[in-house]
Amino acid sequence: MVDTAHQGYKEYAIEEFLVRSEPYYRPVGDELELFSAAYNEHIPVLLKGPTGCGKTRFIEYMAWKLGQPLTTVKEKGKKTQEVGEGEIRVPLVTIACHEDLTASDLVGRYLLDANGTRWIDGPMTRAVKAGAILYLDEVVEARKDTTVLIHPLTDHRRILPVEKTGQIIEADDRFMLCISYNPHYQSALKDLKHSTRQRFISVEFDYPPVEIEAEIVQKESGCPAELALSLARLGEKVRNLREHGLGEGASTRLLIYAGRLVGRGITPRRACQVAIVWTLTDEVELQRSIEEVVSSIFE
């Protein structure tokens, strides 16, 4: 990597992307233990939960945490020195699935070059080889042919057949497949097939309880505790409207956005309006109702 004077970006090879600094993650239940156990036991994990409730953050956090030397084995004095050196590499490969994502997008393809053709590994192949955590976000969106790849990788075989090159890759020991899906969002048509589902353990996520969410909002947006609590409370109230025409409740992410806007001097009511009310719905009556809740909670 070339280090020019003021380079604003960083470039990594897919499998070299590590989560280097500790991401903020506030565990709500026993999800950390569950995930670690699954990781060590080579069990794939399915993360369920509404948008913006922290699934991706959780994966990042786990990638970081699993990459840390196990503090339990190390002596206390050594721990600080060893960071970066003694760490186990757990790269994180995240792929956002969309309806045109095909198996070959994941596995790789032949490219032409001056001397003929050249095989290029796709992100999944690279993750399998590098022993990364492969995170397929919103997996139901992907083409059905991707199941061909997911199935052999997720059972005891842990292999990736590469049809075009006629190879089979056995996954690195540290490789883990993790998928996410949002049960509220998908229609019944796009449900995960049971044969796929039953290859995973499922960790359910939901928006955290008010107090914890307030803590998260405060931490992430840097706003005062009181405001964070109010925002969390607003989040809770708005989510109550989910059955009343609101497709999705206000995500924690949106609450954090609102908190950050307030931090920049926007008034709370206005911040909530732009970050929450207008984002969530275009329906006038619903907007008005949420605004009334906002104006009740914020002065």
Binding site: E236, K237, V238, N240, L241, E243, H244, E285, L286, R288, S289, I290, E292, V293, S296
Partner: peptide, 15 residues
């Protein structure tokens, strides 16, 4: 009515 209904539902968490 519509707005108040949604407002109340939001606050109480029930329909």
């Amino acid at each position: 009515k519509g707005v108040v209904r949604l407002y109340c539902s939001a606050l109480s968490g029930t329909n």
